[in-house]
Amino acid sequence: MDWGAIIQNSFRGFIGEPFIYFSLAAMGLNMHYGYTGLLNFGQAVFMAAGAYGLSMAVVTLGLNFWWGLLLGIVVFPLLLALIMGVPTLRLRADYLAIVTIAASEMFRIIARSPSLDRWTGSSDGLTAFANTFYDFNPFDKQKRYFFGLFIGNQMWVVLIGWIVLSIVVLIVWMTMRSPWGRVLRAIREDEDAARSLGKNAYWFKMQSLMIGGMFGALGGMFRAIGTQSAQPQNFITDVTFFAWVALILGGAAKVGGPIAGAAILYGILNFTDVFLRQLVENGYVPESVMDGTQVGQVRFMLIGLGLILLAIYRPQGIFGTKEEMALDDR
């Protein structure tokens, strides 16, 4: 057993790329669910909007990287929020849940469809669209940084990721202390009350969906930039629930909740991943019980189990307080 690798990988999960992607996605969900009470089960599609917005702009449409950013961070997520929000935000909460999860499935089918190959690259997705991003990389590609955890290109992605994440945290923190955030929280508590006081609940919910969606798109875009590829399987329905677990784990309606949750989640996931792989490789677990590819499936089981246990036993998350916000609220 290589305990050094296990510890190193766990720590990398704590602060590395997936932590950034999913912190951003969970920050978006926090805006949706934690502050506004919207049940968005399609955050993966917002992530995909960021990834595909950038990659399709550059690869399919031949635009430059900066137009790609605009498309991926602003245009695609806003369109998506309108498509999912307009029909559902007037209705009870579970309709948004159903439509967002349906949108995930639609994305999967459309993105993998060979008939749209020249637009989306189908199953293989699109690659090599973030060269401009790496052109600015001040780090040496051949060297390792930050306790040797990241090579040059990764360090650049992670650094920019941390900066963007800090900006998003600042935005959430600022807006949630403002009258705007107060209206969102009022809608979460009781939409009719907010409406009776002259607040356009529908429009505020739409804004929340849009802005949280943009945070998700940022997360997805980083994922695409980090691997220089936008592939359908990186944004399947279940990906949404990694962000949900991060959110509930850290505590909804806390500014730092999603970040703490994502860090802990990816620390745990990377640990179990590497730990199990080592067990399999070193023959502690016979091939008949588990092989290398099945290790990847275990993390999804953990996500499912995590959702169940958190929702039942710790709905307010690790750092949350029941008085303020818990999954268990009516």
């Binding site: 600022m174 009258p179 705007w180 955030g181 209206v183 009022a186 006081l197 607040k199 802005i211």
Partner: peptide, 16 residues
């Protein structure tokens, strides 16, 4: 405070 009407800070951009 929620009851106050015409609040400038209820616009997302101005809230920042």
């Amino acid at each position: 405070c929620l009851g106050g009407t015409g609040q400038t800070g209820e616009s997302f951009f101005k809230a920042l």
